[in-house]
Design a protein around this nucleic acid. Structure first.
Length: 553
RNA sequence: GCGCCUAUAGCUCAGUGGACAGAGCAUCGGUCUUCGGAACCGAGGGUCGUGGGUUCGAAUCCCUCUAGGCGCGCCA
């Protein structure tokens, strides 16, 4: 990556200046190369002299001049100039920029891939909604964040595994079973009431009907009603899970592993993790329950892991689950995407991880903030238990997966967002989604025209690409690998949407100014190469976001 | 009360300690186009919530305060 090369270039030049004695040999601060927002400041810039001035007490301008004087010439850099108060601005050679079109064509669908991860294993767990009902809109946000991040991390050279944690144990599942069994009985004309802590949504009635249709009343004739509740519950659970899976697929979200909470007990992780904590002295007994002593690690309070009735809490299984991730499966890094309602869980989970002897930095938690759903000015309340929900499926069916994905991605995870259904549909003509996809379809169309006219641009000479609109487009395309690096580091995929729009804008502008297929055959071929490269970059960007790159629309 | 998130143009939001704070939508004004007008070009619009501090340099880092959200269960 050029950015890195420039940093090395600067480092070397500084070393030379220091050797010449003009600069005290202080240790170098991190050499940051940035993309100036003002084009007059060149393609890349560094404020290294300003930082060195602080450390050495020398004039930044003098340092900058000395460094520039020692910069080795390279094929990429046209010039490096000093700008007050102490910047070094790099301008790239047009000929080098043009030549990058060939590199992009060679890279093809792999353009944007980088080596950052060096094959390290990274697990990303997301959605993981309790299988007690359909996914709602807020879950969609986590789903899109997770699947997009997974795409980015894979492009960044990590071995990525996407995982859905199925909470198929615990008290909420129990409430689900009892609710469903009550509906089951009602369906068969019997008196039954949904428990107070149960699930009241209409989908539970539909679920009960389906089970009656398939199995009739056979569960009423079991000797034990507990068995009946469990069996009916299990059937319901399976159906809910497959519905969740189908809903996610509709959005283009898939998983490598569906991990069952129950398996933690049958495979012994639960016991192992807890005894490990006990050995570390992090477990205590009080008030008839078993506690994790998080206060020993600076937390506000301790947390119950085993209730006084002997049943493990959600926290207990989550301890076992993370033990499994780090110790059993040996992931280098684990990313969890949780909703804002799990905020309180973050710090104690990190505490647990360090109590298990694992560097808590290896656990990264992304909190995706709430989504408020609107229809015009009206707020739609989202609550699973009351049953008044707009499901994710309804949303996707209304606005389509591409719009859905782009919309969720376009805001940073840590800010709350409104999702206005009316707006998402009504605006479709001015929608940024179509704007970006249109650019792609337009390119496809140009390439079709060229083909129809029998133009074979494989021998096109990219050195003919010299005008500003052409070079602007190339500059923007060269940003993608840097963007992948940024997102893989910060875990903030929303930048993709902005990049996609910028790239589309610059393409449209180029298109307006530069005729691609013209009488000038040599130039046509060169521009066809450029346009083909732009298609690659645009398509890769869309695919990273999990969106389609249409040939026509 | 404690913890975390948020506050930037009329609206929705970007903005890795750097050079005059950006985009989309909206508003106003242009381009009427041999390759796709779902396009392009331009204009107006901002005490970056408040008040301090650190720094050569702050929307960005630290503290105060204000407003909104979420969390602080032997729920998950």
């Amino acid at each position: 990556m050029l950015k890195r090369k420039l940093a090395e270039l600067l480092t070397q030049a500084v070393a030379e200046v220091q050797q010449s004695g003009k600069l005290p040999s202080v240790t170098l601060p991190e050499v940051i190369i940035e993309r100036p927002q003002n084009a007059e400041h060149g393609d890349y810039a560094s404020s290294l002299p300003l930082k060195l001035a602080r450390a050495t007490g020398t004039s930044p301008l003098a340092i900058a001049n000395d460094i520039v004087g020692h910069l080795a010439p390279t094929p990429e850099v046209e010039q490096a100039v000093v700008a007050p108060p102490g910047f070094i601005n790099f301008t790239l050679k047009s000929s080098w920029l043009a030549s990058q079109v060939e590199s992009i064509l060679v890279a093809g669908d792999g353009y944007g891939d980088i080596e950052l991860g060096e094959g390290r294993r990274i697990q990303i767990e997301f959605v993981s909604v309790n299988p007690t009902g359909p996914l709602h809109v807020g879950h969609g946000r986590g789903a899109i964040l997770g699947s997009t991040l997974a795409n980015i991390l894979a492009a960044a050279g990590y071995r990525v595994e996407k995982e859905y944690y199925i909470n198929d144990a615990g008290s909420q599942i129990d409430a689900f079973r009892r609710s469903l069994y009550a509906r089951y009985k009602q369906c068969l004309g019997l008196e039954a009431e949904v428990p107070e802590d149960g699930y009241l949504g209409n989908y539970m009635i539909d679920l009960a009907k389906e089970i009656v249709a398939e199995h009739g009343d056979k569960f009423l004739h079991l000797s034990s009603e507990v068995d009946a509740v469990n069996l009916v519950g299990e059937l319901g659970l399976e159906r809910i899970i497959s519905q969740i899976r189908a809903d996610l697929e509709l959005l283009g979200v898939s998983f490598d592993v569906w991990f069952s909470e129950r398996s933690l007990f049958s495979n012994g992780q639960y016991q192992e993790a807890l005894s490990l904590l006990k050995q570390g002295g992090y477990i205590s007994e009080k008030e008839g329950a078993t506690w994790f002593v998080s206060t020993a690690l600076g937390e506000d309070k301790d947390n119950v892991v085993i209730r006084s009735d002997g049943s493990p809490t959600y926290f207990a299984t989550d301890i076992a689950y993370h033990y499994d991730k780090f110790v059993k499966r040996k992931f280098d890094t684990v990313i969890n995407i949780w909703g804002a309602d799990h905020l309180g869980h973050v710090s104690r989970m990190k505490a647990v991880v360090s109590a298990l002897g694992i560097d808590p930095e290896r656990l990264r938690v992304i909190i995706s903030q709430m989504v408020t759903l609107r229809r015009g000015g009206e707020i739609v309340r989202v609550s699973k238990r009351s049953g008044d929900i707009i499901t994710l499926r309804e949303l996707v069916e209304e606005v389509g997966p591409d719009v859905c994905r782009f919309f969720f991605l376009s805001r940073s995870a840590d800010s709350q967002m409104d999702f206005d259904l009316e707006l998402a549909k009504k605006q479709s003509a001015d929608n940024p989604v179509y704007y970006v996809q249109y650019a792609h379809a337009r390119i496809a169309s140009i390439l079709r025209v060229a083909k129809e006219r029998g133009i074979d641009h494989r021998d096109g000479d990219v050195s003919l690409l010299t005008t500003e609109p052409e070079l602007m487009l190339i500059r923007k395309m060269l940003l993608l690998p840097e963007l992948v690096e940024t997102i893989a580091t910060t875990l903030e995929p929303h930048h993709l949407t902005y990049y996609a729009q910028d790239l589309a804008t610059i393409f449209h502008s180029f298109y307006k100014q530069c005729r691609v297929v013209s009488q000038n055959e040599a130039l046509s071929k060169a521009r066809l190469k450029l346009v083909e490269a732009a298609k690659i970059v645009l398509s890769r960007t869309l695919h990273l976001m999990g969106m389609s790159a249409p040939e026509r629309m």
